[in-house]
Design a protein around this nucleic acid. Structure first.
Length: 172
DNA sequence: GCCAACGTTGGC
DNA sequence: GCCAACGTTGGC
């Protein structure tokens, strides 16, 4: 056994450090960027996601070091800042906490159904980039967030979209 | 508050 | 496996 493990380790190549970009939605009435700014080490468990497509991305795709746009939905919808993934997907224990509003009787520690990541705040924009402003940006024509009926609370973001959004946030 | 767009549930 | 009913999200 040990021999096999060692062989695997010695032949394994370190994958190139590839940063991916994501957008995480939150309703500021339940958790806002200011809550994140006030959190210890400005870090939080991004828990409570209860949609399978979003779950799959949290579990399988978001990697440590990936960058994140933070989006406030519903009230004054806008991108409000950026964060970094500091821990990739792992089981979301709020699913088996009966006191949690995210409790799900069908999830249990033996067979976790829901996942979360940890994120740390990088920057709160001085001026939020409103949904209306985003819709006016030519480079975001195909952005998932702007698609009609788009509801996913975890979305991939293209690098070009990330760049355009950051540039716009710096020079509004 | 309205309602369109999705996702989930459950009867058959 | 289909699909109607229901629940949720989220912009406006």
């Amino acid at each position: 056994m040990a021999g096999i493990k060692q062989r695997l380790e010695s032949t394994q190549e370190t994958p190139p450090a590839m940063t991916s970009y994501w957008l995480l939605k939150t309703e500021p009435s339940s958790y806002s960027i200011d809550d994140l700014a006030a959190a210890p080490e400005q870090t939080t468990h991004w828990d409570g996601v209860r949609n399978y497509q979003a779950r799959n991305m949290l579990r399988d795709e978001l990697q440590e070091g990936d960058r994140v746009l933070l989006y406030h939905s519903v009230k004054n919808p806008a991108i409000v800042g950026t964060a970094t993934v500091v821990r990739s997907g792992y089981p979301d224990p709020s699913a088996w906490d009966k006191r949690s509003k995210y409790y799900d009787a069908k999830s249990d520690p033996e067979n976790p159904r829901w996942y979360m990541v940890d994120v740390r705040l990088d920057e709160k924009f001085e001026q939020p980039l409103t949904l209306a402003e985003l819709r006016e940006m030519k480079k975001l024509q195909e952005m998932e967030l702007l698609r009609k009926g788009s509801r996913l609370s975890v979305q991939p973001v293209r690098k070009a979209e990330w760049t355009a959004i950051l540039a716009k946030a710096k020079a509004p």
